[in-house]
């Protein structure tokens, strides 16, 4: 009997103690308690996209000139150019256009990403609107890059409904370029196909 009583007292004490140790709130209302607004990569990138596209357009260098000069190297550059679509490449969800540049372009292979999945963080890396310090951590910084690519896809690539019939057509692009060996990969920020 004494043991049972002691157990009941212990359980009551524990419940009272735990009552002060637990806070139950409605899901998604954390900001009211922390004063911090939850990070929303999609909303951030959507709001920033107009300015970023404008910035890249203003900073873009002619790709043919870059390639005939020092090249892109290990950096990420804002570039622009025009050429002819030579090949429509499908690598699972990654669709890519191989482009033959107008004018002297050197021996590099020019690949233009058209999604739906994009590799790399070129768009984020060439913009100056936000930097790593604007985010709480590496994860948010990475999510922002992905969200920018997704926003660009919705705004720039998707409306063009590009398929393999685009081969042979004329393309004009602006975007972020990276180079690996002789392969130059471009993530577009603006694109026209005629």
């Amino acid at each position: 009997m004494k043991k049972k009583l002691a157990s009941v007292v212990m359980v009551v004490c524990l419940a009272v103690c735990l009552g002060g140790c637990v806070k139950v709130i409605d899901k998604g209302t954390e900001a009211q308690y922390t004063g911090e607004v939850a990070f929303d990569a999609a909303a951030d990138s959507s709001g920033d996209w107009g300015q970023i596209a404008e910035e890249i357009s203003g900073a873009a260098q002619e790709l043919t000139e870059v390639l005939s000069g020092d090249g892109i190297g290990s950096s990420t550059l804002a570039v622009k150019g025009s050429g002819t679509i030579a090949e429509y490449i499908e690598k699972g969800p990654k669709h890519i256009l191989r482009i033959e540049l107008d004018g002297e372009g050197g021996s590099e292979t020019i690949l233009l990403q058209i999604g739906t999945v994009y590799s790399g963080t070129a768009l984020r890396d060439i913009q100056t609107l936000k930097n790593f310090e604007s985010f709480t951590n590496q994860t948010e910084w990475s999510q922002y890059a992905k969200a920018l690519n997704a926003e660009m896809h919705t705004q720039v690539v998707e409306p063009l409904a590009i398929d393999d019939s685009a081969v042979g057509k004329k393309v004009t692009f602006t975007g972020g370029a990276t180079q690996s060996g002789t392969e130059v990969t471009i993530t577009p920020s603006s694109l026209t196909i005629e």
Partner: peptide
């Protein structure tokens, strides 16, 4: 609901 526990807990 989301439950937040104190550090000792």
């Amino acid at each position: 609901k989301t439950i937040y526990f104190s550090v000792p807990l």
